[in-house]
Design a binder for these strands. Structure first.
Lengths: 204, 204, 204, 204
DNA sequence: AATGAATGAGTATTCATTCAT
DNA sequence: GATGAATGAATACTCATTCAT
């Protein structure tokens, strides 16, 4: 890579990191582009050389952070599989969900940031809109897990959709507001519900 | 009621109706208090005599409209029960959900307005924050339905929470964006999931 | 007039005067609304209560100042008529033009400001768009002069149009840039041309 | 010409043509140097190797296009003279004016572009500022026409100045806004005025 | 109770120009 | 000669909220 391209890459990364920090600290709306630029040590105009506007960079960050969350969960799962041997498909899903929920519980600013945006729309975007990025292709990961499972699954995309919406929308409320109960109290009910959604999609 | 109180009530209602119309037409953010006041035929200062700010009136409207939605669904259910005789608890829940989804599908502006706000937080608000309002107390309605059911239910509030979050968040995406499938395609999967969530909460 | 209305009138006038001063000093483009507001001692938002934008206030000023110019010229003419007795129609027109040119020569900032805007478009606007203003109705003034003249005139509006465009556009160049000659050198040629344009429109 | 000079010439011409196209399409103010450069296929910095700024290239284009307009009118006149034999000086002037007006009426974007800039200042510029250009020297053309005329003319430059300002400023308004009348209605009045301006300058 | 004039904080975006490579 | 990344100045406009009448 030429020196100038390397410089551009560094500058882009610096802006991304700075923006993430500010978004987490003060929220997207309360963060101005002027602040991001200044904190990143570039001129305001430079921001626009790399990103279209504040929402462009926000979406890129959400995709990236969601991807990180899934990647970490998948890695934890893989590690467990190596240690403990194979486990049923449902358990793998629950394991990953639990891993993600715990991380979000630890890092509630991140949850507020991705908030309800961790939904199907952003998911689809994360898959289709960033072929150039280093982010993982979730669909592929799930498809592999499904294939690896001995039990065939009907309408896997729909199943994932139902699970993601249920989990993200209930845990958002439980983690941030403890409404109607705190996340630990919610977990058993939630996981039971997830299990039964999976059960429905098992080909008999 | 004194004449002056009646006048105040009329003014309040006029502001509420005007705001609802504008929120549906242009969205909450694009509607200014100046617009609401002018369209309602009162001075800007007058708005503040009745509501704290735009979000105060928005929340009151969401509670009210959600309540309307539930009331209509409950009435349709009661009518059906009169005609067709008693039905299982699960079927009653599904019937109401279906009724609400159909209405939101017809009135997508309303869905956009209530949007993801039709969540537990607003629900609780709708119950606690409007003792003076004419809106129905959902909790009571559900409790009555549960009592009327022959089968006892564990953690009914949690069960309702799971169902509402699952239904609202998936049908939002399916109705407005047909993502990942359109609402009619989603329905059978969704209703199956709802049924299995209910099943889990039946005391054996 | 109520005290509050009087206050509004004063505020409006204050903004107008301040804007005029700044436009003359630094030009319209180099003057920001923030500057006008600050110099006029009102908040930025207040500006927008009285004027739509910078071009709104600019147009109002151009109309007003043009009107002043014509009014002063007409008054000078009336005074001369009282002293020296009646004069031919052509001489009256030339007298007014000369009066206006001399004033613009004295006040070149004003000429730069109205510049080539003292054209038919602004004229029509000055007539139609400010019925509420105190500005004179030029058309009426000219029509009266034409009626007062013993000689009937064909297509008076067109004649005035030709004269105004010729005079304004040539004297702009002559006064500000002495191009192709200075204004005093231009005058005899210009007035001869004006006379011959009038001659063409005399009904024989 | 060396090959490298030819390349430079091509690049310059490409920038000029691109800028003209964009100026006509979107206006000078709405066209940025970045756009011109990109559309011309050169780097932004390269623009500055050939032109001082946007107004430099604008002026060069106005001079060039005005020159084209006059050249075409002169050629049409010459052709007519060959076919129909000699004609009076006034008729030649009117013929050229008519030719130019018709062209501007057909190509109103060009009129908007040249707009009121087709004035004495740019004229003088066109003569003095582009000795290197291929554009015609208008003064010379007019001087030749005047010489060719049998009637001697007083102050020819002043006469041309009066005529150009009168014609350009009235036809601008008539063509673009049909104010106060459309161009065809204006023509007879305008041409009569031009004739009488010429008459005044004939040596008796 | 009602009014509505006044306030002024808050921010995205463009673009001419430079200069290191 | 050519490039194009970086700069940073410059500015309109909205709108929630207050408070004197």
């Amino acid at each position: 890579m030429k020196k100038i391209d390397l410089n551009k890459q560094l500058k882009r990364t610096s802006i991304l990191n700075t923006a993430y920090k500010l978004f987490i600290e003060k929220g997207v709306n309360k963060t101005s582009i002027a602040e991001i630029s200044q904190a990143a040590g570039v001129a305001k105009g430079t921001f626009y050389l790399y990103f279209r506007d504040k929402y462009d960079i926000r979406n890129k960050l959400i995709s990236h952070e969601s991807s990180q969350l899934f990647t970490a969960a998948k890695q934890a799962l893989d590690k467990k599989l190596v240690n403990d041997g194979p486990m049923p498909f449902e358990d793998m899903i629950i394991f990953m969900i639990n891993n993600i929920i715990d991380e979000l519980n630890r890092n509630q600013s991140l949850l507020t940031f991705i908030s309800k945006n961790l939904s199907w729309g952003v998911f689809k975007n994360a898959l289709t809109a960033s072929p150039s990025s280093d982010d993982v292709d979730f669909t592929q990961v799930f498809n592999e897990m499904i294939k690896a499972s001995d039990k065939p699954i009907k309408d896997p995309e729909l199943m994932i959709f139902l699970i993601i919406e249920l989990v993200s929308s209930t845990s958002y409320s439980a983690i941030l507001y403890k409404e109607p109960v705190d996340i630990e109290t919610l977990k058993p009910h939630l996981y039971n519900s997830v299990r039964s959604i999976i059960d429905q999609h098992l080909e008999l």
